[in-house]
């Protein structure tokens, strides 16, 4: 009964696009022996209520993530680049469609 000496199926992260035109969004993970099975299992597990239009499956070990301790160095510098946002530029009154 022990699964200790038995190899587990690899873990896959699943991304679902719910409608054409939208982003694929992470929904969770599952186990599958191969990629084809991962996509099909995702169809059965994560789209039981018609939530899906397209599925991506990625081996969990293939995902590289930023580290939480890098959060400051990575993301804070974008904080003060207000000139990237359209509201930084006041438009003269009466100018339209811009």
């Amino acid at each position: 009964m022990s699964s200790k000496n038995e190899q587990d199926w690899p873990l896959w992260e699943i991304f679902i696009q719910s409608k054409r035109g939208l982003d694929h969004k992470h929904v969770g993970s599952l186990h599958a022996a191969d990629a084809q099975m991962a996509v099909e299992n995702a169809r059965d597990v994560y789209t039981r209520r018609n939530e899906g239009n397209s599925i991506w499956a990625v081996r969990a070990t293939d995902i590289h993530a930023s580290r939480p301790e890098d959060q400051g160095a990575f993301f804070d510098p974008a904080d003060d680049k207000v000139y990237r946002h359209p509201t930084f530029y006041p438009m003269p009154e009466g100018v339209k469609y811009i």
Binding site: W9, L30, H31, A32, M37, E40, N41, D44, V45, R48
Partner: peptide
């Protein structure tokens, strides 16, 4: 035999 397959078979 495995949870994922339980779900597939029920579908």
């Amino acid at each position: 035999p495995v949870l994922e397959e339980d779900i597939a078979q029920a579908n």
